[in-house]
Amino acid sequence: MSVLVFAESTSEGKFKKTSFEVTSYGKKIAEELATNLVVLSINASENEALYKYGAEKVLNVSNAELSSFNAKNYTSIIVQAAEKENAQVIIIDSNANGLYIAPMVAVNLKAGYASNVVEIPSSTAPFTVKRKAFSNKAFNNCSISTDVKIIGLAKNSYGLFENEVSGSIEDFSPVITENNLKSESIEQTTGKVTIADADIVVSGGRGLKGPENWGMIEELASILGAATACSKPVSDLGWRSHSEHVGQTGKPVAANLYIAIGISGAIQHLAGINSSKVKVVINTDPDAPFFKAADYGIVGDAFEVVPKLIEKLKEFKVNNA
């Protein structure tokens, strides 16, 4: 028996931060179940980096044919690894690829799957986990009744825990079968922090009046190493691309810090960003609902406050470098 974690890496072979989070989480579950942790990686270049988070054994697949993600192949590799390691619990992150393959892995292994899980199981018999539901307006305590269990861990919910072990790497060569789902091209913005990876997100709303005013949002984001985001009307109006729309019907945000500028705080907006740890609002209207959801707020005009904030943050960065 074992706990299997899938640690995703980028096309350059570097692990995503969430890979260390799922490994930390997997280690804890393995301890609770008194079993071993096995971490599966595909074409990763720094497998040793997983030891720090408790990966006793890394199952490493290196195969040039897998240089780009293919959902069917990746599903099949996880299934083969789970069977080989007799995995009882499988943990997958909530990045785009993780969300894509987890349901398929579940069907192939006849496993129950709980997504959006935010904590260590509250009990292992019955196996019960707490997950986000109703778009962050509630939690659902959910029991998985199958022998094999799949957990989709919500991003930034458990955190990273160091637990250095002297691990080992085992090469793994699963069977790969041809399929007709082909990747034709990938368009990726390079050099920009994505909302999925970001620790800090700076988000602008209709209060910013027009797309020409986003310069200060981008500058603030770049000083903080943050991703930029926006409210739904801003993307509907075409001021910013759809990929920046956050909220209940857009992307979820689970950052350490979310800064909302000129955003009223409608229930649908808040639902999507509420899992962020610390929320800051800058808005001219002291009655804007966002102030009820935020930890820190400034009642003021974004066009005055944000430039000042940029200036002072630059000084802060120099002094704290």
Partner: peptide, 27 residues
Amino acid sequence: TTSTKSFDKPAAKSACKIVEADNVEEL
């Protein structure tokens, strides 16, 4: 394969700390 045991609501959050607009250093 799964079943809902119960639901919880998120814990109530503490009030927002308001910082003066001309005091961004405080933020």
